[in-house]
Design a protein around this nucleic acid. Structure first.
Lengths: 152, 152
DNA sequence: TGCCATTATATCGCGTGCGATTTAATATCG
DNA sequence: CGATATTAAATCGCACGCGATATAATGGCA
């Protein structure tokens, strides 16, 4: 690999980075109608899947820190989609519960995935395969401990 | 496609989104030593490839708006890596030129791609293939005009 | 030439993201 | 039981990223 002649377009990281932005641009007009942002949508998807998760559990699913989630969850609370409640058995934890409005949002959002699917212009099979490959890449990156991890 | 049972982990967009963050986490300790951030690194790569680009040209390569680039370029200028200069023939444009320090940074950054390559744990062939597929996905998303584009 | 549309960059406000630190609650261990 | 370590969220500062808007320069057309 001769790094000297690597062009921007050759970087896999850049492909991922810019495709993330491209997804965001497709999502934005759709989610604007629901009054939420893309990260907020992901949190709602996680809660529709399982209500009453702690901040830490949501962070683990989304690979986000509490410093990102706390303000985001407060905005979702202000918007009336969730309730934030200290766990009575462990007061360190904050559990996030869907409100009626938050549950109702799921119905309004039911067509979002098919809109996004249409935007990709790919077959389901291809998307599933690509998704798995990217997840495998993410797992490898998460495992990586730095170039001198062996020396510790 | 039954959206009702789509789990977070099934979303291709989420795979891309979270993998972008994972890349950032791998890049951070490496780029910290160079004193730049990941988006700043991308701008430097673009300039090492071709010096003297306008803000708009850089934005086109990186899919970023001037509202993102202007502050970032000012930080690179403050750090001494680039010079910002109005084009004398068209005073609307601002051309970004590498300084000596900015050119010197390329040598210091020469091992970055191989560090990242190592972190992915994949073969070159697989990375090239995956890169092409993701770029193709990005192109499709960029082409998409919204669900009611036909009605215009 | 003069008016107006267009173009390039900059500015502003808002919402992420995260590292470092703080705060408060729980667990552990003598 | 009490001091200390650990853990979960929250807070803070900084850097994106973008839509909307502003500013300034250029282009086009009567």
């Amino acid at each position: 690999m001769d790094q000297e002649q690597l062009k921007l377009g050759d970087f896999l990281c850049f492909a991922v980075y810019s495709t993330g932005h491209a997804f965001n641009r497709v999502y934005k007009p759709i989610l604007d109608r629901l009054g939420i942002t893309y990260p907020q949508y992901l949190v709602m998807v996680a809660l529709w899947e399982r209500d009453g998760q702690t901040v830490g559990q949501i962070g683990e699913s989304l690979f986000l820190e509490s410093s990102t989630l706390t303000p985001l969850l407060k905005r979702l609370e202000t918007a009336g989609h969730v309730r934030r409640e200290r766990d009575s058995r462990d007061e360190r934890q904050v559990r996030i519960h869907l409100t009626e409005k938050g549950r109702a949002l799921q119905a309004q959002a039911k067509d979002v995935p098919s809109c996004i699917f249409e935007a990709t212009g790919k077959s389901i099979e291809e998307l599933i395969r690509l998704q798995a490959e990217i997840v495998s890449l993410r797992a490898a990156l998460d495992r990586y401990e730095g170039p001198d991890a062996k020396k510790v």
